[in-house]
């Protein structure tokens, strides 16, 4: 066994000469630590500036204060409740808006009639900034869940619709002709040629949609809500709890990052055939 492992080992050692021979955990590998140097330095400087009084903690809490605020919010359970509420809103809005966007994108990409009928209308509506509808939405739905769902769904709809449509239109017509010549019926053509061909573009829409989802949710929760992360931040502002405000902002950032990483993972699984996404 040692024999067969030898060439592989030798090759990897040649490729990465900096790597020490001793078994070291992957996260301790210096080349993996380099990207984290700058953020660590910033946080350290921030902490020093806060605790030496260089920056007033009334405006910018020190990192340790934020951690402490997070800890106490987690212990009272307030954090989890708000996080869960925000997550459900984001998910519901995304599923509804994304689902409708995908459906319209597919329909308009596949059927000329459907496209003629609805595309112009949708493109016109697209030019309305969806956040400008907030006053109207509050009038319609109050500050209920309906309002948030509507806004998130509307925001998510367009990137997914536009990218799905674009993806289907840009499928290589030569491949479609090949499918026809090789006797595929419309169904097979869709599942084996059109949809996989449109998938990279649909994923682009998915990622844009996720970005808009968080943005819309933050705005909607900040303006009108009685639960959720945005509500938590606004409450904290009332009581001048700067650390909680910063905590909420950081959690939003973290959620955005998690959503993006999940999409990347999904992309890498679904688009493994595409050299651009492999080990990317």
């Amino acid at each position: 066994m040692a024999d067969s492992a030898l060439p592989a080992l030798a090759r990897s050692a040649a490729a990465r000469p900096a790597r020490p021979a001793a078994r070291m955990p992957r996260w301790l590998d210096p080349s993996r630590l380099i990207p984290w140097l700058v953020p660590a330095a910033i946080i350290l400087g921030w902490q020093v500036a806060g605790s030496t009084g260089l920056v007033s903690t009334r405006f910018m809490p020190a990192p340790l204060d934020v951690v402490r605020a997070g800890w106490s919010a987690a212990q009272t359970g307030e954090l989890w409740v708000n996080l869960w509420v925000s997550f459900l809103r984001a998910l519901a809005g995304f599923v509804v808006g994304g689902g409708i966007g995908l459906a319209f994108g597919l329909a308009n990409g596949l059927s000329k009639l459907s496209e003629k009928l609805t595309d112009t209308t949708l493109q016109m509506v697209r030019n309305v900034p969806h956040l400008s509808l907030i006053p109207l939405v509050i009038l319609w739905f109050g500050i209920d869940e309906g309002a948030k769902l509507f806004l998130v769904a509307l925001g998510v709809f367009f990137p997914i619709y536009a990218n799905t449509l674009h993806g289907i239109r840009s499928v290589d017509p030569q491949l479609i002709e090949m499918g026809r010549v090789y006797g595929m019926n419309r169904r097979e053509l869709f599942w084996r040629v059109v949809l996989p061909g449109a998938l990279p573009s649909i994923f682009v829409g998915l990622r844009y949609g996720l970005g808009i989802m968080w943005l819309t949710l933050i705005v909607a929760e900040t303006i009108s809500a009685n639960s959720g992360l945005g509500y938590m931040a606004m409450q904290a502002r009332e009581f001048m709890l700067v650390d909680v405000v910063v905590l909420a902002i950081l959690i939003y950032a973290l959620l955005g990052k998690v959503a993006d990483s999940l999409t990347r993972l999904l992309e890498r699984t679904c688009l493994a055939w595409n050299p651009a996404y492999r080990n990317g």
């Binding site: 030569q174 491949l175 499918g179 084996r192 996989p196």
Partner: peptide, 24 residues
């Protein structure tokens, strides 16, 4: 027919691309 371009489905493995020729 064999076209000027290979026209293979990039998202199907080589063997599945060949199997396209067998239809159903």
């Amino acid at each position: 027919i064999m076209f000027q371009e290979p026209r293979l489905l990039p998202w199907a493995r080589v063997v599945d691309n060949v199997a396209v020729g067998l239809g159903r």
